[in-house]
Amino acid sequence: MSATVTPYEDGPLLLRGDFEIVTPDGDRIEQEGATVALCRCGKSRRKPFCDGTHKLVGFTAPADREKPLS
């Protein structure tokens, strides 16, 4: 199954399917489960993974493409 990235409203990006997370040097970053949540609020202390901190900092983002400023 190809990889998909799904933004969840006010939350992380969920990554599913066949993928690898690697450092710029190509070293593998180990993941726990088949599906992972990637931080997109910038405040996680487990980056690149989500640790739920977005809920403490009032992070908001849509589950779709953000609309450009009008």
């Binding site: 969840y8 992380p12 992972v36 487990r46 989500c50």
Partner: peptide, 11 residues
Amino acid sequence: HVEADAVHEQI
């Protein structure tokens, strides 16, 4: 559980 439940809560 820190990382796993960050996934599970969305699902």
